[in-house]
């Protein structure tokens, strides 16, 4: 509970500092490149495999119920609504959460954060605001790209034992997707990104006890961020249900 309070204060400080000049745009764009662009190959690979495997696993069940023709629609909805954002967020938590936690943690224990402060730089703004903002904005982009690649994997999966054209597959997918499937999934991915960024930064920024503490920060950042992804997902489902979007 004590840590939850500290994390809330940390997030509150982020909200305050976010709007105040000076804006660290160069560092923000650098972080977007590192967090977004450099995560893309991993997200693409896992998305592709996920789409392919999901399709191959679903096919026997759908054949059993005689609804094999609904395979593109089912896979499309599953990927866009739930599996795409959640799996991408978990991959993101593992890669970015740990890297932010370890980077800020080692900067903390080697006094680099203090050095920044005595150089006339607000380290919170330079290190935390830029990373959290980049994570918040880049994850939805990665989710969209991951979904697209995942659907392509699903298309290949459908064609392993069938013969469906690219056009027909994607027409079926898109025709069966409603705004209620796409919009909540897109919106919740911003929250996933924010959670991964703020938890990684929090654990790293307050890292203690030398190199051992850096390892602990990186580990805790991944574990807590991954759990938070599921908690946010649960809340998002409840909210979309209340709003009648399900």
């Amino acid at each position: 509970m004590y840590e939850a309070g500290d994390l809330s204060r940390f997030a509150g400080r982020f909200m305050r500092e976010w709007f105040r000049p000076r804006y660290e745009l160069a560092e923000f764009f650098r972080q977007c490149f590192i967090i977004g662009y450099k995560s893309f190959p991993l997200v693409a690979l896992t998305g592709f495999i996920m789409g392919l495997v999901l399709t191959m696993q679903l096919r026997p069940s759908l054949i059993r119920y005689g609804v094999e023709s609904q395979l593109p629609a089912m896979v499309g909805i599953a990927i866009v609504r739930e599996i795409g954002p959640v799996i991408t967020a978990l991959i993101f938590a593992g890669k970015i959460g740990s890297s932010i936690g370890a980077e800020l943690g080692s900067m903390k224990v080697t006094e680099q954060i203090d050095a920044m402060e005595v150089s006339g730089t607000n380290p919170f703004k330079y290190l935390v605001v830029t990373r959290v903002a980049a994570a918040t904005l880049m994850l939805p982009v990665l989710v969209m790209l991951g979904d697209a690649i995942s659907l392509y994997g699903a298309y290949l999966g459908v064609n392993i034992r069938g013969n469906t054209s690219f056009h027909l597959f994607f027409t079926q997918v898109i025709n069966n997707l409603a705004y209620g499937d796409v919009l909540p999934a897109f919106i919740k991915s911003f929250f996933f990104g924010f959670a991964v960024g703020i938890i990684g930064c929090y654990k790293g920024y307050y890292s203690q006890k030398g190199t051992e503490g850096v390892g602990r920060s990186a580990n805790a950042a991944v574990v807590i961020a991954s759990v938070m992804v599921f908690v946010i997902d649960l809340l998002a489902v409840q909210i979309t249900d209340l709003l009648g979007l399900n």
Binding site: S106, M107, T110, E111, Q112, D114, A115, M116, V118, S119, G120, T121
Partner: peptide, 25 residues
């Protein structure tokens, strides 16, 4: 301020380390 651990920024070259405080102040 000269830190005990030197506190050089690992991700920057020597030149960038020197320019960092200069450009910001």
């Amino acid at each position: 301020f000269l830190f005990q651990s030197n506190a050089l920024y690992d991700s920057m070259t020597v030149r960038q380390n020197l320019l960092f405080p200069l450009r910001r102040t």
